[in-house]
């Protein structure tokens, strides 16, 4: 697979703050590359360096096999980006905003192209309305329309689900999968929410304090032998006692917050379920949690907020 993004030894300091520290990673063609880290980890700074908004202190950035320093315009013409909030011209309509950025992206603008794009993001009926009256979700959708209007080969979405309701989050997730599978685009998506990233990403990079913690495919990062299962029952203390006297004792983890949890292989979950029923335990829920989540929680020192 050709390399779309190749970053080597990237550093950025703001005064005494080392925002990005010797960061190296590669994004291949067709990847949905999840860029994960808690708030302030250096994700946005890295993305801004990829878009030439921030100059790196040191390091090498190549996109599409070309240096960003020497082929800036050519490279940016192939990128569609939404950086953090989708801030737009509030006094202009959705149609006018899209038209302006389509022109600046270098594509041939026609009314049909613009309306089709607005149709894709579900804003065709609000095309002539001023953006100042739009909800956050509508602005986000318009931001995505702007990022995609010139049919870029690489799409960079920085925290695309920020401020969205569950339906909006699901729509963005669907869009990312569609961009990758149907339109064969390379997507780099950043988030501080593991849950968001792991549902769409084919490869994941976790950073903390500007440093790379781990990078790999979802399969590489998710060790099936380290799957954590949480059990909620009518009497969690009794459940823990029964399991500690069974063959599952070696899998049990100390009980915390009145939650019974076991670390096991993913394939053992059905058998655990059967045994729980045989022990006459009333189960309310049996929830699988990945080792990646524990890993992420550990590296980000518990500041991670789990969302469902």
């Amino acid at each position: 697979m050709p390399e779309i993004i190749n970053v080597e030894g990237l550093c950025k300091t703001f005064g005494k703050l080392q925002a990005v520290n010797n960061l190296s990673f590669t994004v291949n063609e067709g990847d949905v590359y999840g860029f994960l880290g808690q708030n302030g980890a250096g994700k946005s700074t890295t993305i801004r360096m990829l878009l030439t908004l921030i100059a790196p202190t040191s390091g090498k950035v190549e996109l599409f096999g070309k240096s960003l320093l020497t082929h800036r315009k050519e490279i940016l013409a192939q990128i569609g980006a939404m950086i953090e909030r989708p801030d737009l011209y509030k006094y202009l309509s959705a149609y006018d905003n899209l038209k302006i950025f389509a022109k600046l992206s270098g594509c041939k603008v026609s009314e049909q192209l613009l309306m089709n794009q607005l149709e894709v993001v579900g804003l065709a009926d609000r095309a002539k309305d001023k953006v100042k009256g739009f909800s956050q979700g509508m602005k986000q959708r318009l931001g995505i329309a702007i990022a995609l209007i010139h049919n870029p080969a690489l799409v960079i979405l920085d925290e695309p689900t920020n401020g969205l309701d569950p339906q909006g989050i699901a729509d963005i997730r669907k869009l990312i999968i569609n961009l990758s599978k149907e339109q064969k685009k390379t997507v780099m998506v950043s988030s501080h929410l593991l849950n968001e990233i792991e549902q769409v990403a084919t490869r994941i990079l976790i950073i903390d304090k500007g440093k790379k913690i781990i990078e790999g495919t979802k399969q590489e990062l998710l060790d099936p032998n380290q799957t954590v299962v949480e059990i909620e029952s009518s009497n969690n203390g009794n459940t823990y006692q029964l399991l500690s006297n069974s063959s599952w004792a070696s899998h049990l983890q100390p009980i915390t917050n009145n939650i019974v949890s076991l670390t096991l292989n993913k394939n053992q979950i059905p058998s655990l379920h059967r045994n729980l029923v045989e022990m006459n335990i009333d189960i309310y829920s049996l929830q699988q949690r990945h080792s990646l989540e524990d890993y992420f929680l550990k590296v980000t020192k518990g500041n991670y907020v789990h969302t469902v």
């Binding site: 878009l51 908004l53 801030d87 600046l104």
Partner: peptide
């Protein structure tokens, strides 16, 4: 102030 500067400067213009 509007936040559009980053969007403009990430377009293929010097």
């Amino acid at each position: 102030n509007m936040g559009t500067l980053r969007l403009l400067l990430s377009k293929p213009i010097t």
